[in-house]
Design a protein around this nucleic acid. Structure first.
Lengths: 221, 221
DNA sequence: TCAAAAGTGTTGTGTTTACACCCATGA
DNA sequence: TCATGGGTGTAAACACAACACTTTTGA
């Protein structure tokens, strides 16, 4: 059995764009870098892949290290590898994106070096090419809203249709018609009423729904 | 400036699924391995990325090395990285797929270790996880037919609408209605008549079309 | 004149959009 | 009783699918 000839040393890392819906806004989790390069800049959670670790295992690990939670929706996004992307040397980064309901978090934004940032108000520049990675993840998420049930991965266990609609509107950046929206999501057949109601203020309470198969993301149409 | 701590040596390669339409059949270019591991098995063209070489540059290089041609459509597919995928050690492979018109090839299928294989009649098992890579590329290509003009990248400079329809039918694996098909592609506005005709046998000659912006792939709808 | 593929429109069906009012509640 | 968001149906517009005959050529 041969061994490989390495002409150079290349590092492989994963960076994870972790999306959540926080205070009605689509947000990503960023880490403030404490070391050069890009000291003081915000970066995506990430790191080198471990020996014997699959790429998506590594991504799940990054996610668990920062958020403390497991079993969330995670999907490979793209691999970034221009030679200059890390000033320390050649690093190829396999980017992932994750979606999680904010309520599941048990996270301390420790010492201010871990924080949620609204997508509409990101820092001017992020470390490395992370701005580009976030932009691509947002674009992919937008596209997937149209032809899959991916948005459900951002919802808590129980939610109202208005809350779901607000999530779509925030991500797509446009208002949707209430009746058409409800017709569409109800026809998917993925939702069921919990039978419970949610009271929020001085108006009619809303029905609560849950997802029939919580882990599942379906391609629609 | 720091340097990276490598906990291990990881190699990064690219493998390229090169599609063409050959004798009415969607085919991929495979290389017969002359060395272990998988000696004698067919594999995708690929290899380690070079120092200072971007990932898509590496993919273009693989393509040029095997086919001798440049400037073809190339897109990143997915990155494969389970630790066991190469018995020699850890190799993360960034897979690409390419589309090219068969007529552009000036390639010698040298000594029988480089050959086109119809997608419908691939060898039972390919080297490494290359069977999986090809399957994913085919699936992506199918999906993109529906919402982009990607199929045009398989066409020669001039072609008839019937030839174009045959390409769609072969990839999708279903017959299409002639009138609806022609309506659709003509409404895209990407095609123009050359004014020439193509005679092929004892029947009415077909108009030849060309693509207005040959390099370009548009997202439609 | 026959065979073979090129070329061409219309109609029906289903999907998507636009749109406005009543309901249940808390203050 | 009023303000607030929850909840509901219908009609028009549009996109998509189904479908058959005439044209041009070479043999």
């Amino acid at each position: 059995m041969n061994t490989l000839n390495h002409t150079e040393s290349t590092a492989v890392s994963t960076d994870v764009v972790i999306f959540t819906m926080r205070e009605e806004r689509l947000s990503v989790l960023l880490v403030k870098r404490s070391r050069e390069p890009f000291k003081g800049f915000w970066a995506l959670p990430g790191g080198l892949i471990g020996e014997g670790e699959a790429l998506d295992e590594a991504a799940h690990r990054m996610l668990a290290e920062k958020t403390g939670i497991e079993g969330v929706y995670l999907e490979q996004l793209y691999t970034f590898g221009i030679p200059q992307r890390d000033p320390r040397g050649r690093v190829v980064s396999v980017a992932y994106y994750a979606l999680l309901p904010y309520c599941r978090l048990r996270m301390t934004e420790r010492a201010g070096n871990l924080a949620w940032h609204e997508l509409g108000a990101l820092p001017e520049t992020l470390a490395f090419d992370h701005g580009e990675i976030v932009a691509m993840a947002k674009k992919r998420l937008c596209a997937k809203l149209e032809y899959s049930t991916i948005a459900f991965q951002l919802m808590p266990e129980k939610f109202t249709l208005s809350e779901l609609q607000a999530v779509y509107e925030e991500i797509l950046g446009e208002r949707l018609d209430k009746r058409n929206f409800r017709k569409r999501v109800q026809n998917l057949g993925c939702l069921e009423e919990t039978g419970e109601q949610f009271r929020a203020g001085k108006h009619r309470p809303a029905k609560l729904y849950r997802i029939k198969a919580p882990g599942r993301v379906d391609i629609i149409k």
